[in-house]
Structure formats: structure tokens, C-alpha cells
């Protein structure tokens, strides 16, 4: 058995995160959306988005180490996340359901999304902040490009973007603490060449494709890892756009 864990996905309410941190003080938090070396299971259909597949595969992989799974089941996640939470409960996992849909009117703060960090690092820090707030001061950069979307399964293709890339879409909503704010999710800088990314089979493909067309951006969908042609499209868009 490894170190005991609290699994989670999406953006559970901070109060629930805090409650379970106190309940299991020696546990580590594991974001089940991410790759952790789990074997692929065949419980979900092949046409399931890779992030949701990761949740199921990781839950099976870590089963004996998981004290609890905190599942985002509101509009801040998706129907698939909600259904998987029910499947896992049925399979005997200790599940806690969280919805995170109501926010105050505090000004939106997104220092990481607009910082000069490499894009992959920006997204890693934003997701890490879900369980552990970090108060680092970030340096703003003037953007050359925009990246719209969710944290991808494959971080490799993010290396194609320069540090001067601002983050939009759901990832920006997560940093702002408003993960179900669709208005903020649909916001982009219309003067900025932007790549609109969604995981293949994720319903956010609808928004990504629509917004890419509306703002003259590039729509890409990636299932597990970005293909050479997807990477080439991004490179060509950056040089031609």
C-alpha cells in the first residue's frame, strides 16, 4: 500500500477540501483527472473523453489507497463527471459530492493566467491551487497568443506556445475561483490569436469550435496525445496568424 490519498476532480468547494484535509491530515491530494500511470480499464466506453477515463482508471489504480474521493458534480464539471461519480459510488468508493456554482461579486483575479510563466507551468500552478493556495507574486506579460480550454491530458503540446501566452476558458475560470461561470469561460481577447482546445469527446468542443470560428482562432481537439498534424496546425497558425 502507498501513502493514503484523497482523490478529487474538478474544482470542489474550498470548504469541502478544508474539511477533508482536517479529517485525513496525513493524506495527499491526488487530482484524478491527471495521468498517474494507471492501466487503461474498459469500464467506460471508448468514446469517453480522456479526462473522464483518467478519473476511472486512476480510481481503480489507487483503490486501496483512497480514503475518499471528492467529486465535482455541478456545472463546474460536466455530466460525465457526475455520472462517473455515481458509478464509483455504486462500485463501493467512499464518495463526497461537491457543487461549486455560486460566487460572490469580488473582482476577478487571474495573475497566473496572465503571467510570463511557460504555458504548461501556468496550468499546473492553477490546478495545484485548487487544493493548496500559493501566494506567489507573478509577473504580468503582454500576450502574443491565447490558449483557451481545460488543462489537457497531454501537456507536451503546450511547449509549442511562447511564455507570452495568456490562458482563457475554463482554466482561467478555475484560477478566478468561478469554475461554472460560462460567461467568463466564453471571454477571449478578440485581438489575440488564440488556440481553442478541447479534449475529444468533451462537450466543450462545442464552445471551442464556435468561439474559434467567431474570433478567427484555431480549433483543436486532442484525445490522448496531440498528433503530429495537430502540433503542425498550431505551429502553422502561430506563424501565419
Amino acid at each position: 500500500m502507498g501513502k493514503k490519498k484523497i482523490g478529487f476532480w474538478g474544482v470542489p468547494k474550498p470548504e469541502i477540501i478544508k474539511e477533508y484535509r482536517l479529517k485525513y491530515p496525513n493524506d495527499e491530494f491526488v487530482d484524478l483527472c491527471m495521468l498517474h500511470g494507471a492501466k487503461k480499464t474498459s469500464i467506460l466506453p471508448d468514446t469517453t473523453c480522456k479526462i473522464i477515463s483518467n478519473i476511472m482508471d486512476n480510481a481503480i489504480h489507487f483503490k486501496d489507497d483512497l480514503d475518499v474521493i471528492i467529486a465535482s458534480v455541478g456545472q463546474e464539471k460536466c455530466d460525465s463527471g457526475r455520472f462517473v461519480s455515481r458509478i464509483l459510488k455504486d462500485m463501493g468508493y467512499n464518495m463526497v459530492f461537491s457543487t461549486n456554482e455560486n460566487y460572490n461579486d469580488a473582482p476577478i483575479s487571474i495573475p497566473i493566467s496572465t503571467s510570463n510563466l511557460p504555458l504548461g507551468e501556468k496550468i499546473t500552478k492553477i490546478t495545484a491551487n485548487i487544493v493548496e493556495k500559493d501566494n506567489t507574486q507573478y509577473t504580468y506579460c503582454k500576450p502574443q497568443f491565447g490558449f483557451w480550454g481545460v488543462p489537457p491530458n497531454d501537456f507536451e503540446f503546450l511547449k509549442l506556445f511562447p511564455n507570452e501566452t495568456h490562458v482563457f476558458g475554463w482554466t482561467r475560470c478555475v484560477e478566478a475561483g468561478r469554475p461554472a461561470d460560462t460567461e467568463l469561460e466564453m471571454y477571449v481577447d478578440e485581438n489575440l490569436p488564440t488556440v481553442f482546445f478541447a479534449q475529444t469527446f468533451c462537450n466543450k468542443m462545442q464552445l471551442a469550435k464556435y468561439l474559434a470560428k467567431k474570433y478567427g482562432g484555431l480549433f483543436i481537439d486532442v484525445d490522448d496525445y496531440a498528433t503530429n498534424s495537430t502540433k503542425a496546425k498550431i505551429q502553422a497558425y502561430m506563424r501565419l496568424g
Partner: peptide, 21 residues
């Protein structure tokens, strides 16, 4: 094994896509 296209409007890049899947 693939199809790709690029379009220009008034001399400037407009859109592109590449399908191999």
C-alpha cells in the same frame, strides 16, 4: 493519407485545417 487547406483574405492568413485522423 491526409487533407489540408489554408485560406487567405486580402493577402492575410484567414483559416487552416489539417485532417489525418
Amino acid at each position: 493519407r491526409d487533407t489540408k487547406w489554408v485560406s487567405f483574405k486580402n493577402g492575410k492568413y484567414k483559416e487552416l485545417d489539417w485532417n489525418t485522423a
